[in-house]
Amino acid sequence: MSDRFRVVPAAYIFLLRAGASSDEVLLQLRQNTGYMDGHWAAAAAGHVERGETAYDAARREAREEIGVELGDLTFVTSMQRTQHAEPIDERIDFFFSCRSWTGAPRIVEPAKCAALDWFPLDGLPDPVVPHERFVLDRLGTGVESYTTFGF
């Protein structure tokens, strides 16, 4: 067996809007996915497919999961992460934020999403998927363009 690992890329989109006291983020409550069910997570996220950029994946996932067409995307950070498992489990995640979209966000995949709701960035629900919480806690505070999680 080779010592090389396969990196699995994913794109995450945080829809943001102005709230009463701070910016708000749209989050989904995961269910029946086999990963972090019962945790709040980015409203739309998923694997980057072969031949697709992370930007393209973000736009596709937003259409598929919450039924919106995204406007301008802002790159937030890339995150190399692991769970101290076999090296095959290493991931590279691309996080984007978006403040403009067409359509009303809605649950498109009800078998995988129990709820969809807006939360103030300074009042996030519990629990949030840990590596996503890491980024959300730093959103708007100058998060580095490259971060690591789990090493």
Results as ranks from 00 to 15, higher is better:
residue 12 Y to Q: 12
residue 13 I to D: 02
residue 13 I to Q: 04
residue 18 A to S: 12
residue 18 A to K: 15
residue 18 A to G: 13
residue 19 G to C: 07
residue 23 D to T: 01
residue 24 E to I: 00
residue 25 V to N: 11
residue 25 V to W: 00
residue 26 L to D: 00
residue 26 L to K: 09
residue 29 L to Q: 05
residue 31 Q to W: 02
residue 32 N to T: 04
residue 34 G to D: 03
residue 37 D to N: 09
residue 38 G to V: 07
residue 38 G to S: 13
residue 38 G to W: 03
residue 39 H to F: 15
residue 39 H to V: 03
residue 39 H to P: 02
residue 40 W to Y: 15
residue 40 W to F: 08
residue 41 A to N: 11
residue 43 A to S: 15
residue 43 A to Q: 05
residue 45 A to Y: 14
residue 45 A to M: 12
residue 46 G to P: 10
residue 46 G to F: 12
residue 49 E to S: 13
residue 51 G to P: 07
residue 52 E to L: 07
residue 52 E to V: 14
residue 57 A to K: 08
residue 57 A to W: 11
residue 59 R to E: 05
residue 59 R to I: 13
residue 60 R to A: 04
residue 62 A to M: 06
residue 64 E to S: 03
residue 68 V to R: 03
residue 70 L to G: 03
residue 75 F to G: 02
residue 76 V to L: 08
residue 77 T to Q: 05
residue 78 S to D: 09
residue 78 S to L: 05
residue 78 S to G: 14
residue 81 R to W: 07
residue 82 T to P: 08
residue 83 Q to R: 10
residue 84 H to S: 13
residue 84 H to K: 05
residue 85 A to S: 10
residue 87 P to D: 06
residue 88 I to P: 00
residue 90 E to Y: 11
residue 91 R to G: 03
residue 95 F to T: 03
residue 96 F to S: 07
residue 96 F to P: 08
residue 97 S to L: 00
residue 100 S to N: 11
residue 100 S to H: 12
residue 100 S to I: 00
residue 101 W to E: 05
residue 101 W to K: 08
residue 102 T to V: 09
residue 102 T to Q: 15
residue 102 T to L: 08
residue 107 I to Y: 01
residue 108 V to M: 14
residue 109 E to F: 05
residue 110 P to G: 02
residue 114 A to D: 08
residue 116 L to M: 13
residue 116 L to F: 01
residue 116 L to K: 14
residue 120 P to F: 01
residue 120 P to N: 07
residue 121 L to W: 07
residue 122 D to A: 07
residue 123 G to I: 01
residue 124 L to C: 02
residue 124 L to N: 08
residue 126 D to Y: 12
residue 127 P to V: 05
residue 127 P to L: 04
residue 130 P to K: 09
residue 132 E to Y: 01
residue 132 E to N: 12
residue 133 R to K: 14
residue 133 R to Y: 15
residue 134 F to L: 05
residue 136 L to I: 06
residue 141 T to Q: 15
residue 144 E to R: 15
residue 144 E to P: 06
